[in-house]
Structure formats: C-alpha cells, structure tokens
Nucleic acid binder design. Structure first.
Lengths: 167, 167
DNA sequence: GGGAATTGGTTTCATTGTTAACCAAGCTCC
DNA sequence: GGAGCTTGGTTAACAATGAAACCAATTCCC
C-alpha cells in the first residue's frame, strides 16, 4: 500500500501521469459495465429480454402508458433504440401501441397484462441485485454516493464539453 | 431536498417499486457513458483515436512494453477489443509488436516515438477533463467517492452474480 | 517423446449501437 | 390555404461489440 498522494501524480520528469486505475471516468465505466451485466443476467435469458426492452418496460410499468418520446426522455436511450425495443416488445405482445387520436404522429405505448406480469416478476429481482450491492455501504456512504452521483449527473447533463461554445 | 427514505420504495399495494432515476446501476451506466464520451471528445477527432485505442496507449505509456494479455488485464477490455485496437495502432504506427523470443505465442507491444508523442499530448487533456469534473466536489466528497467506488469495484470483482455458486 | 490440455491471440459471425436519411402529421405565418 | 419548418417515429447503412470457433506455440504428465 502506497500513501495516497494529494495532487495529480507526476512522473520523474514532471509530466502529469495517467493511471487508469485511478482515473474516475475509466473506473466508473468498468464498474457500470459490470453492474449492467449483473443486472441483465437476472432477466436476460429467463425472460428473453434485452436491456433496452427492459428499460422500456420499466418506465411503462412504473408510470403507465406514454409515448415513445417520453420513454426516450425517461430512459436516456436514443429514439432508434427505443423504436427497436418497442418493435420487439410488440412482437412478443408485451406492450401495445395505439395512435394518439389527438395527434396522429404520436403512438401511445402501454404494457399488456402479460407485460405487466413480467414486469412484476423482474422488479424484485433487479432490486435484489442493487440492494446486495449496496449492502456493503453504510447509510452515510449511500447518502453521499447519492449526492455525489447527483452532482456529476448535473455536471455532465448539458453534455458537458468543458468548453462547448454554444451560441 | 427530500428526506432519504430508509427502505426500498413500495407502491400502494406493497409491491416494491423500481424508479430508474434512482436505480444505481442505471444511473451509473448513464453517467459513465457521458463521461466516456466527454473524455473521448478531447482526443477522438484530433488524434483519430478510439477509446479502446486510447486505453491501450494509456497503459503502454504508463507502464511500458507489455503483452496484449497484460493490456487486457489492465484495461478491463476483452481480448478481441484489444486485438483490434492494436491492429489499428499498428497500422498507424503508434505501437510496435514483436514476438517474445522466450515464448513465441506472445507478442510484446510498445509505443513508437510517435505514439509516445501522442500519449504525451493526450494525457494532460484527459486529466483536465477529469479535474474539471471533480472540481464540483469537496475534498471529503472526493475521498469518499474514491472509497465507495473502491468498495463497489471489490464487490463486483468476481463478476458478482449474487448467487454464483462456484465450487 | 508425444498426445492432451492450456495459453496467447486472431478471425468469424450474429447482435448491437450510431448516424443520417427519410416519411408522415402537424404547426406557422404570409 | 399552402410553402416551409418542426415533431414523432421508422428505416437504412455502417461501425463497434462480444461469444465462440479457431490456430499456433507451449506446458503437462504419463
């Protein structure tokens, strides 16, 4: 165990050094990937469900019928992904789609009873994975993690470029 | 600020509820994606470099020549990705590959002078992105974030399945 | 010494993600 | 009322990914 240096590491010649093991974007990326896989594992094979499909079902199950666009907003997926996920969910009769009579561009999506049944089974499973994960953390740690992640979400929200000169 | 609920949320009927917005694996996945893109933005076009290529260069630049397998371990990418990244880096003459005389299955990779030059230019750029990101956090928050992420890394290391009965 | 298992790495193939083009409905504003 | 912009969503084309098959060199172990 080496003592933790306070500033950014520098190599002998004074140039800043990049250690992937300590580089936050990298670490989070690896971590998030593992988590996604761990979560997907509980529903993928058992319910023949991909992550985009599950996310779509998750928001429909939680908030009720909505347009594809709303699904896009709530899931942080782009519309192509949602479109394809919905196509597969329709094929498997897990959601329905009906054209909004008030604005015929819109299609309103909703879970079928069968979709709802799948939803009800999957929710506890993925929550169990999360809570197992969090079981390692104290209440303070959880609260702070929540706060910090929230800050980072804010910080990166406008698709932060650091120096994006939008007009 | 809402008070932090102690247990998992439950809907009226007592069934547990899943809110993507508060589901940690989902949040981290979205956040990590944004971070990866933000970091990639600083080197992608300017140096014609993809994320896997950059990661490969990063470990070679930091730790010196090593086999592809070691790159795999250090970057947490799978070997296919590394293999392809290396192929492109070879084509652009940013790394060299020579067969290890002691074990002719192995190929030892290293940065070329040009690769090293690119590395030296990119490192400060990505560090700047990270530090801009972290500038939002207090010292305590950073320290705790580091600790919590470390815990989660440990927790998910064995590719935690929650119930993987390995022998 | 020599077959079987292992290791390092690449290729193949099916899936997925991304970007741009596209279509159809609705809105704007003259 | 109709040319042109905007919005909701799908399709098409292309690059990136991951699992498994594969090849070659090495080690195991009888």
């Amino acid at each position: 165990m080496k003592p933790i240096p306070s500033g950014p590491l520098r190599s002998e010649d004074g140039a800043p050094t990049l250690d992937l093991e300590h580089f936050l974007p990298f670490r989070l990326s690896v971590l998030a990937n593992r988590l996604t896989r761990a979560v997907a594992r509980v529903y993928a094979q058992r319910f023949q469900l991909s992550a985009p499909e599950w996310r779509t079902m998750a928001v429909l199950g939680r908030y009720g019928a909505m347009t594809a666009n709303s699904v896009v907003e709530r899931t942080a997926m782009d519309k192509v992904r949602v479109s394809r996920a919905v196509a597969r969910l329709l094929a498997r009769e897990r959601v329905t789609r009906r054209t909004d009579p008030d604005d015929r561009r819109r299609a309103i999506l909703d879970l079928t009873p069968e979709g709802r049944a799948v939803y009800a089974k999957v929710v506890p499973m993925v929550l169990a994975v999360e809570s197992e994960l969090l079981s390692q953390l104290s209440a303070e740690e959880r609260a702070l993690l929540d706060r910090v992640v929230h800050k980072l979400e804010q910080r990166t929200a406008g698709d932060f470029a650091g120096s994006e000169d939008e007009i």
